[in-house]
Computed example of a mutant assay.
Amino acid sequence: MEADAGGSARGAQDRPAVGLVLAGGQGRRLGLGAKALLRSGGASLVARAVGALRADGCAPVLVVVGAQAEEVATEVAVAGGVPVRNQDWASGLASSFRCGVAAVPADAARVVVTLVDQPGVGADVVARVLGAHRPGRIAAATYESVGDPHTGPRARHPMVFDAALAREAADLAEGDRGAREFLRRRPDLLDLVDCTALGSAADVDTPEDLHLLGP
């Protein structure tokens, strides 16, 4: 029995992980339209996010679109991703998380969740977190520059969920909190993966953050 369980776990890990990019927001504080369409290094942020996930073998790569859905969906398709329409995108990040998780194939073993507005999250970061993930758990990137001196490192994206746990987290998601409530309730399931040397969780949220896009 133990050998069979181990073989089952290895088989699940061997199957391609499903990628999930949350890209439905309008970027109101930035004021430049959908952040997914901002360009960095000659490509849109959404194309970069899809590329980072595909480079590490994620298949399919689902991208939740909302604001400027037609334009973003075109970028997604060209990059090799699959657009997923969220009609309720204006209600906050949680609706995009729920919408994306609902589109994950029923036989998926793992789901890699990332945000479209973090240009410092590339394929190297995705690979490290994927490599650290264990069945039945959640692995999340952490970065030295993001934390609290009293509580220590914080879980940031990308996050790799056992698919069943992704569905549980989506059920609890509200407003702009995504998986935060689930992680608060079940910290015992979380493994933090130091990605400081590989990237950054800094997001493009206001005009002061535009330097993160680079040339």
Score class of each variant (00 low, 15 high):
residue 77 A to K: 13
residue 146 V to H: 15
residue 154 R to M: 13
residue 118 Q to T: 13
residue 72 V to K: 09
residue 70 E to R: 09
residue 73 A to R: 12
residue 96 S to Y: 05
residue 99 C to F: 00
residue 155 A to R: 07
residue 111 V to P: 08
residue 100 G to C: 04
residue 86 N to T: 02
residue 67 A to F: 03
residue 68 Q to I: 05
residue 53 L to R: 02
residue 147 G to D: 11
residue 66 G to H: 00
residue 151 T to K: 12
residue 82 V to N: 01
residue 58 C to F: 00
residue 86 N to Y: 06
residue 117 D to W: 14
residue 73 A to C: 07
residue 80 G to N: 04
residue 126 V to A: 12
residue 148 D to S: 13
residue 103 A to R: 05
residue 53 L to Y: 04
residue 68 Q to T: 05
residue 142 T to F: 08
residue 102 A to K: 04
residue 74 T to Q: 15
residue 103 A to H: 06
residue 93 L to W: 01
residue 112 V to R: 10
residue 98 R to D: 02
residue 104 V to D: 03
residue 135 P to V: 09
residue 139 A to E: 06
residue 96 S to G: 10
residue 64 V to S: 04
residue 148 D to P: 09
residue 53 L to M: 02
residue 158 P to F: 02
residue 141 A to F: 05
residue 90 A to D: 13
residue 120 G to R: 03
residue 152 G to L: 09
residue 132 A to P: 02
residue 138 I to E: 11
residue 158 P to E: 07
residue 95 S to A: 13
residue 53 L to F: 07
residue 135 P to S: 14
residue 157 H to P: 14
residue 147 G to L: 05
residue 104 V to G: 10
residue 144 E to C: 15
residue 53 L to D: 00
residue 52 A to Q: 01
residue 106 A to Y: 02
residue 106 A to M: 09
residue 142 T to R: 14
residue 69 A to T: 01
residue 92 G to I: 02
